[in-house]
């Protein structure tokens, strides 16, 4: 089992969701985060006080999948999130030792789908 974590541009979320549904990946958790990669931050000015390099809003997806779903999940996220500009985000794939569905007490691969 793998845990796929993706940090993407907020305005690409809808496209990524569409692509994931098309790839039959339906279970995702989404949260709003602040981040800073290579993309330079934005400038903010409040009463003349300038702040640069601020953190940008990003969206973080967490998707737990079985091994045979990993590639199609990655492809779907890439397809939906890619604009070709800096700031498109990153995908991390982590090993996932255990998964439990609370309602049924199912464990492992059974619990993921």
């Amino acid at each position: 089992m793998k845990l796929v974590i993706a940090i993407i541009q907020p305005h690409r979320l809808e496209q990524v969701k569409d692509e994931l549904y098309k790839a039959d990946v339906n279970l995702i958790t989404v949260s709003e985060v602040l981040g800073h990669g290579r993309q330079k931050g934005v400038t903010e000015v409040y009463r003349g006080v300038r702040e640069t390099g601020n953190l940008l809003r990003k969206v973080r997806l967490e998707i737990a999948v079985n091994e045979n779903y990993v590639e199609r999940t990655i492809n779907a996220i890439t397809k939906g999130a890619k604009t070709g500009k800096t700031g498109d985000g990153k995908i991390f794939v982590l090993d996932l030792p255990e998964c439990i569905r609370i309602r049924t007490d199912e464990r492992g691969s059974e619990a993921i789908g």
Binding site: E32, L34, T43, V45, Y46
Partner: peptide, 21 residues
């Protein structure tokens, strides 16, 4: 298109209405 994606607050006024942290 990029400015539209980031929003008018930051791109037109260098401010944002709400902070997260």
């Amino acid at each position: 298109e990029e400015q539209e994606a980031i929003g008018l607050d930051l791109t037109q006024h260098n401010e944002r209405a709400y902070t997260m942290l």
